[in-house]
Amino acid sequence: MSAVLIAVSEVGAGPELEAALTSVRLAGHTLLLAHVIDNGARGELDLIRSRLLGRPLPGHRLRDIGAAERDAATSILGEAATVAERLGAGCETWLGEGEPGRELVRLAAGGRCELIVIGARPPAADLRPGPHSLGSTARFVVDHSPVPVLLLRRVASGRPASAPPPVVPRVK
């Protein structure tokens, strides 16, 4: 059966995830809680070190980073699954590694899901609507997803980052 893919950010369980779970009709769908370990920062640290010192990151350091990333990701997905169960939704979890947007799209393209639910931006970011109000992961998913995308926007209080551009009358 086709599932609804819920993208779980690094925050794990929180109001954003509950909003995502309650915004889809839970009955009749299996939820696929997906989280991707973003390994970009690790690659960048390695690149910078190679560039400055002529040596890559030491092996033990890479192992430490990898273990920290896996531990954090496992607990994030565990928390998310607990929330889903509390809300009475059956779920599976999926853990990927790479560039988050790309991995989520790849997962959806595998035919396992009919809808992707994703937050517009990480909760720590500026949540006001306006230009550039989509985070890089959400933007990639919106641009490339083979299935419909439900974009969740948790609007912070306050005015929009900028007013919509004025309508310019066409000159004949």
Binding site: V11, G12, A41, R49, D64, I65, A68, E69, I76
Partner: peptide
């Protein structure tokens, strides 16, 4: 070169940006 990757590991474990 040494403290930066250590701090990255720490913030990953703490689940901070």
């Amino acid at each position: 070169l040494i403290l930066t990757p250590v701090v990255y590991t720490l913030t990953t474990r703490l689940r901070l940006p």
